[in-house]
Design a binder for these strands. Structure first.
Lengths: 118, 118
DNA sequence: CTCATATCTGAACATATACTCATATGTTGC
DNA sequence: GCAACATATGAGTATATGTTCAGATATGAG
């Protein structure tokens, strides 16, 4: 941002601004939070998580349920694995995925409530 | 996806796949959910919402708190407005923003819990 | 070992995103 | 009316994202 900022903040807000600033989430936390939500910010991944909320599935099964290529699903699963939203369990040549964290279903439900609120 | 798909799904999973498919979130709902989460998928917006969770702020105040240009903040606020995560209240030439929906704070908290779980 | 299968991965490409800059709109005070 | 200010918006640009395609890796069957 350039310091051509002329905005001096109205006198009423000035103290509020100073009070809010130190209580803000720090940059690293904000980035981590954003990454978690980013995992849920794609319709395909939402559907993957929705499917897994009903029990474990192999990659092949997920691809079948979603009507997508195995490769596309695998790419998404890698992202979800990295962010620890899903767990992979390799059994033979199959890899079974499950939700990693109970919070995920909670996030899901609350998101649904917001969407329903229209 | 190309129908060069040869994956026939292991016999064990086959019935599970058929059971899961009809209970999946539909495409429109998945897209809406994804859009809501996308709103939270950027560190700047996370910080905006964190700031607003402490009370209303004008655009100028937000820009000051975040150390960003007024324009950048305004662009983000438009997105958040469109998705009904924040409300705008114009008073004179100032526009004060607040969180629109109690669910947002809940989402926030649950996201934090997941991030804390490392 | 060889072949088929299940999954993963990297490159390529089209689209989406976040910011900056310049400018437009709308409000207040003169 | 005009000037100063708060906010909104459109164009431009650099970067990120989602998918496809081709090919790599790994397991199981024969």
């Amino acid at each position: 941002m350039s310091r051509s900022d002329r905005c001096e903040i109205s006198h009423i807000d000035e103290e509020h601004v100073r009070a809010v600033a130190p209580r803000l989430v720090d940059g690293l936390t904000a980035t981590r939070l954003a990454e978690t939500f980013k995992a849920l910010s794609d319709p395909t991944r939402v559907r993957i998580l929705s499917a897994l909320s009903q029990g474990e599935l192999c990659v092949c099964g997920l691809a079948a349920v979603l009507g997508m290529s195995q490769s596309a699903v695998s790419h998404h699963l890698r992202l979800l694995r990295t962010l620890r939203l899903v767990k992979a369990d390799k059994r033979g040549r199959m890899v079974y995925y499950t939700l990693d964290d109970a919070h995920i279903e909670g996030l899901f439900r609350q998101g649904m409530e917001h969407v329903a609120h229209e």
